[in-house]
Amino acid sequence: MALHLIKLCVGAESIADLEEWIAERVAAAGEHVHTTRMTPKRREEILDGGSLYWVIRGELNCRQAILDLRAVVDAEGISRCGILLDPRVVPVDPRPRGPFQGWRYFEAKDAPPDLAGPGEAADELPMELRRELRLIGLI
């Protein structure tokens, strides 16, 4: 069974912001690699269909498939992990998520389902409005 990772998407205001950033990275480097300080130890489980779930502004609301985990050495000679991601962002059923540092393992049983795609009612609402409606129990 696939094992996922979850991480805060610092600086992004929305899924659209993340998608713009990814497009810039792919245009510049030909791929989307997210570099982290720590390397996941459960590599095989992650590469067995795992995704990186992004938390944007306190809400888990999208994911990218993980294609590879690469050993990287930065300009200062420090070992890092490069997470090669599919550039396609998949919106998921949004869930509130508190802050944390770095990445965390995220079990498949805890992962929210993907949204159906364009035309999904929640997908058409702005993120802030969805968040407010969820807080008052309307969605």
Rank of each mutant, 00 (worst) to 15 (best):
V55H: 06
A121D: 10
V89S: 12
I46Q: 12
I66D: 10
P113E: 07
L129W: 03
E44N: 11
P96T: 07
P113G: 08
G49K: 14
G77F: 12
D74Q: 11
R42T: 05
E44G: 09
L3K: 13
R131L: 08
R57D: 11
L69Y: 06
E44K: 15
P99W: 12
W54R: 11
F100A: 06
Y53I: 09
I139D: 00
W54G: 04
P91A: 11
L67A: 08
G11A: 03
R88G: 00
E13D: 14
R88T: 05
R70N: 11
A122H: 08
R88N: 06
C62A: 14
D74Y: 05
L69I: 15
I46C: 10
D93V: 13
E132L: 13
A108C: 04
R134P: 01
P126K: 12
G58Q: 09
P87I: 03
L129E: 11
A121F: 12
S51M: 10
D123S: 12
H34M: 07
A121P: 11
L84Y: 02
P113W: 07
D110A: 05
G30H: 07
E128K: 14
L135C: 02
E128I: 13
G50Y: 14
D74T: 01
V33G: 01
A65D: 10
T35L: 05
W103H: 01
L60A: 03
C62N: 07
H32R: 10
D114I: 04
D68G: 12
A27I: 02
A27V: 04
A28F: 03
R63P: 00
D93N: 15
L129K: 09
R97L: 13
D123M: 08
F106Y: 13
G58C: 08
P118V: 04
V90P: 02
C62E: 10
W54E: 09
A121C: 04
R37V: 14
R80I: 05
R25D: 01
L85S: 06
V89E: 11
L84S: 07
I6C: 00
M1N: 07
V26K: 06
L135A: 13
P96K: 10
V89N: 06
P126W: 11
G102F: 10
R63M: 07
I83M: 09
I78A: 15
Y53H: 11
A29N: 02
D123W: 04
M1I: 01
I66E: 09
Y53M: 05
R80E: 07
S14K: 02
L85F: 05
A23T: 09
T35M: 04
S79E: 14
L18A: 10
S79A: 15
L84I: 06
E128Q: 13
L52F: 12
E76L: 04
E132I: 07
P94V: 08
E31Q: 10
Y105C: 06
L18N: 08
I6P: 00
I56Y: 04
D123Q: 10
D74V: 00
P99I: 13
V92A: 02
R104N: 08
A121S: 05
A71M: 05
I56F: 06
D48E: 15
R95T: 06
P87H: 02
D68K: 09
I15V: 14
V10K: 05
A28M: 05
E19G: 00
N61F: 04
A75G: 01
A116V: 08
P87D: 00
R63K: 15
L138N: 03
I83P: 04
P112G: 04
L135E: 07
M127H: 11
E76F: 04
L8G: 03
